[in-house]
Design a protein around this nucleic acid. Structure first.
Lengths: 357, 357
DNA sequence: ATGAAAGCGCTAACAA
DNA sequence: TTGTTAGCGCTTTCAT
């Protein structure tokens, strides 16, 4: 499957010891200077070059200068691959998410990328495409190529995660909490968010709600739905299967109307925006005829018509915090407590008093 | 800056040859099986284990089975770090973008991630935060840790890019074309998109346009603006400094009204959506009083009120294609021709006939 | 302060 | 078909 070839480098002979055999194949970037060449050019040992490159203070200024000059002249930079092997450290951390198209994960990606970047770490990203087993495989592989992992795995079964927990360490879990897993978890208090939403809605007089359900199997959806049921004791709640995308919400509009709900609670902002549009197309006024709420506060939520009432969650903060935790873990400090971020209700124009009728 | 420690592993002694010295420090994942241990357990040489792990057909079935059993029992997987060094190949490709929050780059990220993932490659991602020099530094570093690079670098000066072109190879450039750079480029024909937009608008009778300019220094903005000027011979075009985010567009609404433009051409969909909202807040009807167009066709553009007229560009297709090109390049096949994707005009509700007044 | 040498864990010529 | 051996390019004792 792999093309091989390449052999266009002759000039090689380093390795001071004058090894018995010489000619070898060469998967070398063909031109990259090595530590040996620099050492030779500077007239010092490889150890000294290594010391200089790593800023060890135990090198005489003269030598250091000579080495630096030689390195400069040869345009030398240490091979990351060789350092990985020698150091047993990759300088990289990994992020595994189900869907890079989802603003939730984009948020943690950004936060993590910036935090890790600032600390001089590289970031490996993998997308599981919502496949539970794929999440696990990718996590394992990503972890082997990095020093630590941030895992957003809404689908993989808890037991599965626990069974590989040790091989994943150090790692931190985001948007989910798995009891018994030995990793810190950064999650959202979905129930609290839903309660705020429901309180807001009932305060406006709404008694007939419709819930636009997220993808089945999503841990977030399960939590939000359960909280909704718990928070709406005497109320009528219709659960409409929906999804997580604009189009899913859009397609659900007719069903909402048919059920005669006065308020619809979307699984997330995308389905909420979708239903907003769908409702308008159906001639239903929002919020005059029906109120709509979202969840997550994606950047766009402020710009729907009317602007979406939703609960805000700290997406990129999760990424930044994930880095902090991971960093602590990688330094052998404990992972600290789990935290659940409390969402904040954002009342905007898409909700209003229930129509009297 | 780096905490060190770790030393909790004693049991070590491999290396069949019985080397003179023995005790060593050990940055080993503390527990990971090595090829030597598997070889020992299976009673074969390391070479044989390597062969089996790499599916070489030149191993007798018995041996292969024994090796596989031993590997399984020890829970062995080859060290990626060691393979990198031995093979001179990382199994990873890198993507460098200015802003992970921008749907344009998210699109190529997704396309690339999926294509590379399907091919069993890992993906390294770095964000330059719109800093031209940072783009270059990050690109260089990312490239050293990968086998190939996809670079979205709207800011870095062409000469700078050319000067490091060799060290970046193999790589492909997206959303930009740099003559003389020895890398294939996948870009968007911004001028064509703008022409379509202008034709559409003038066809509707618009004569006074306002352009909401993107960030200064953005290559995309420069192209779009130049094309706009070229395409609007006798027309009045006001250029309003704006930016690339929702809020920038939103903030520009008053200026649009003040200039009395009958149509506003947004640098991208985000500023267009922003101005849409801003205009409505000002009591200006869209498209009755003024028409608005965007650029890019981000997922949300269909869901604004009214839905945004824009030009669609193949964001994730760019990512997929980038992988194809990179793959070809990595196999020593030429990079092929540069391609400019032609955007497609999407007429939606945000544009209409110019008011007669 | 500097160098010699022994690996890190794997692959691939080469020999048998 | 299998083993031996020489690296890949770096870091790090240990001895000087």
């Amino acid at each position: 499957m792999r093309a091989s070839t390449e052999n266009g480098d002759q000039e090689r002979d380093r390795d001071g010891g004058g090894g018995p055999r010489a000619g070898r194949r060469g998967p070398r970037p063909a031109g990259a200077a090595t530590i040996s060449r620099v050492a030779e050019a500077a007239g010092v040992s490889r150890a000294t070059v290594s010391r200089v490159m790593n800023g060890s203070p135990t090198v005489s200024p003269e030598l250091a200068a000579r080495v630096r000059a030689a390195a400069e002249a040869l345009d030398y930079a240490p091979s990351p691959a060789a350092r990985r092997l020698a150091l047993g450290r990759t300088g990289t951390i990994a992020l595994v998410v189900p869907d890079l198209g989802n603003p939730l994960f984009q948020g943690v990606l950004r936060g993590l990328s910036q935090a890790a970047g600032k600390a001089g770490r590289q970031l490996l990203v993998a997308e599981s495409d919502e496949d539970p087993e794929e999440e696990v495989i990718l996590a394992l592989e990503a972890r082997r190529n990095s020093d630590g992992l941030v895992l957003a795995s809404p689908r993989a079964p808890a037991e599965r995660l626990c069974s590989i927990g040790e091989r994943l360490a150090p790692f931190v879990l985001v948007y989910r909490e798995v009891p018994g897993l030995g990793a810190p978890s950064l999650s959202i208090d979905n129930a609290a968010g839903v309660r705020d939403l429901v309180a807001h809605l009932t305060g406006l007089g709404h008694r007939r709600l419709a819930y636009l359900a997220g993808p089945p199997g999503s841990a977030g959806n399960a939590e939000r739905l359960a909280a909704l049921r718990a928070a709406t004791g005497g109320l009528e709640v219709t659960v409409l299967p929906c999804g997580s995308m604009f189009d899913d919400g859009h397609a659900a509009a007719p069903a909402v109307v048919e059920r005669g709900a006065s308020a619809v609670v979307g699984f997330n902002d995308m389905v909420a925006s979708g239903v907003l549009t769908g409702l308008r197309e159906l001639g239903v006024g929002v919020p005059d005829d029906v109120s709509v709420t979202g969840f997550d506060d994606i950047p766009f939520a402020r710009y729907t018509t009317p602007p979406l009432t939703t609960v805000s969650i700290p997406k990129s903060e999760l990424g930044r915090q994930a880095w902090e935790r991971l960093w602590a873990l990688m330094n052998g400090e404990g992972g600290g407590y789990n935290v659940r971020y409390q969402p904040r209700l954002l009342v905007r124009g898409s909700t209003g008093p229930a129509p009297s009728r």
